[in-house]
């Protein structure tokens, strides 16, 4: 178990957005978190990465209690997230975007006396990541000029640059065309061979394809949890969520 939560809860001014959520994310597995809009999926992500402080519950990352740890520290411990709305550095190039992630682990983030060319030694690794995700031809394109799908791919490349132990992806395929969805799905399946992935995804055929475990969230609480087959047979889930989808 690399990441687990027990009794996770969050209240916003009297409104309970998340309640009693238990999660176990395992190494080399893809864990999908699904549920209708407003179910609390993004809030769970914010709680796990400590962008929000939980009202209740405990979070363990690699046998360490991270319930009170700051979000930047969480990232340094190996739990890295993406955001529901694409989060790139728009006016930096694709290469620079990935290099931002590489700078800190390579101890090239605080030098204010060195020229920018000192970052060039990060280029080989950055180019490798860019190539892995098929962005080579956009190396020097500013992120803002990329298509939406490629922005999301760039975001994954940037995240992978940190070589995280646990990857949290918030709707990585939302707003993508069919072709891009297949590409990104295979990228995710690939990276999950060596690390744990927890992803929020609305596209159920992708979830059925690549997820090893599915947790269904509704109104902030867990409705069902198990493999896709079991969960999709669950009558409550069918009426509450999947019934409306099909």
């Amino acid at each position: 178990m690399v990441l687990s939560a027990r009794g996770l809860g969050k209240d916003f001014a009297g409104f309970t957005a998340v309640n009693g959520v238990d999660l176990d994310v395992e190494h080399a597995r893809i864990h999908a978190l699904i549920g209708p809009n407003g179910a609390g999926k993004t809030t769970v992500f914010n709680l796990l990465t400590k962008f929000l402080q939980p009202t209740r519950g405990r979070i363990m990352l690699l046998d360490q209690d991270i319930t009170k740890v700051k979000p930047d520290k969480i990232a340094r411990m190996g739990l890295v997230r993406s955001f529901q709305i694409s989060a790139v550095f728009p006016h930096l190039t694709v290469l620079e975007n990935v290099r931002i992630a590489l700078q800190r682990p390579n101890k090239l983030a605080t030098q204010f006396w060195l020229p920018l060319s000192s970052l060039d030694k990060l280029n080989p690794r950055a180019e490798e990541l860019i190539a892995d995700l098929g962005l080579s031809q956009y190396r020097d394109t500013r992120a803002t000029d990329l298509s939406y799908g490629r922005k999301r791919v760039l975001e994954i490349a940037t995240t992978l640059a940190l070589d995280p132990k646990v990857l949290l992806l918030d709707e990585p395929m939302a707003g993508m065309g069919g072709e891009d969805v297949a590409t990104v799905a295979s990228i995710i399946a690939d990276v999950a061979k060596t690390r744990a992935v927890l992803m929020v995804e609305h596209n159920l055929s992708v979830v059925a394809d690549i997820a090893h475990h599915v947790t269904v969230l509704q109104r902030g609480e867990i409705l069902a949890s198990g493999d896709y087959e079991t969960v999709s047979q669950n009558p409550q889930v069918r009426t509450a969520y999947m019934g409306t989808e099909d």
Binding site: K73, A87, V88, L92, I100, R104, T110, F112, L114, L116
Partner: peptide
């Protein structure tokens, strides 16, 4: 030099997207 340095690059990323910079461990 300060602006055009590794440090300046991180400042730029903070200005462009602070949350993302935090999520990368800064």
């Amino acid at each position: 030099r300060f602006v055009n340095s590794p440090f300046g690059m991180i400042l730029k990323s903070i200005r462009e997207n602070e949350q993302r910079t935090v999520s990368l461990g800064y």
